[in-house]
Amino acid sequence: MIRGALTTLTCSALYGFALGSAHSELYATRNLVKFPLLIVITGVVCALAYWIVARAFAPMLSFLAVQRATGRLFHDMSVLLASLSPAVAFLAWTSRATDDGMLGSYDSFLAFNVAIVAVAGSLALLRQTRALFTQYGLAPAPAKLLVGLWLVLSLGVGGQAAFVMRPFFGFPATRGNTPPFFVGAEPDLRGATNFYEAVWQTIRRPRLPSWLDAGAREQKK
């Protein structure tokens, strides 16, 4: 179990480093701590909810078994993401070398990372569902529902934790600044003060600040 936890933390640190490289060495090195911390906070905050949800669908799972199963979800996801770290680092370094110092390829880099996190999360989800099925004899439907609910809980809490712990990688325009280690509830560029508001604004897509919006339009031309 300890070995698995260490692997999770190391792999998530690797992925975090690659991600932060898109901005600067400062962000990359900070991510070595921030990413493992993000996983630990999400796991700890959700631990009780994971177990209560599991009682309703899989009573044979003890509190420790639930924590092991959710830990394996994070483990698989971290290992998959770490395997993509060289690709992420390559994209980060090349976009950093060629960006315009304003918005750069921030949007496409963000979209790529959202996609690989989604793919890694889904694969980890499928594997854990099968593991619950084979190890505990849990029927496929409740196993899928249970692991899906764990993932939703992790996403809701992990998203807010990530928002508080940002920046993980920022706009090229902020390069050279030394922001606090965690920005916390400070408004982001679109004015969101928490993760859920940021998601809401991603759907509504309000305009970026004029100085950044002008740079983005210039880049599109």
Binding site: V45, A47, V157, A192, E197
Partner: peptide, 22 residues
Amino acid sequence: SFGFAPIVAFLRATMSEGDTQV
């Protein structure tokens, strides 16, 4: 609600009380 209590405590500690849409 007992299972969700730590989550809400975390959200309360990390989200501002002020003017926010969510």
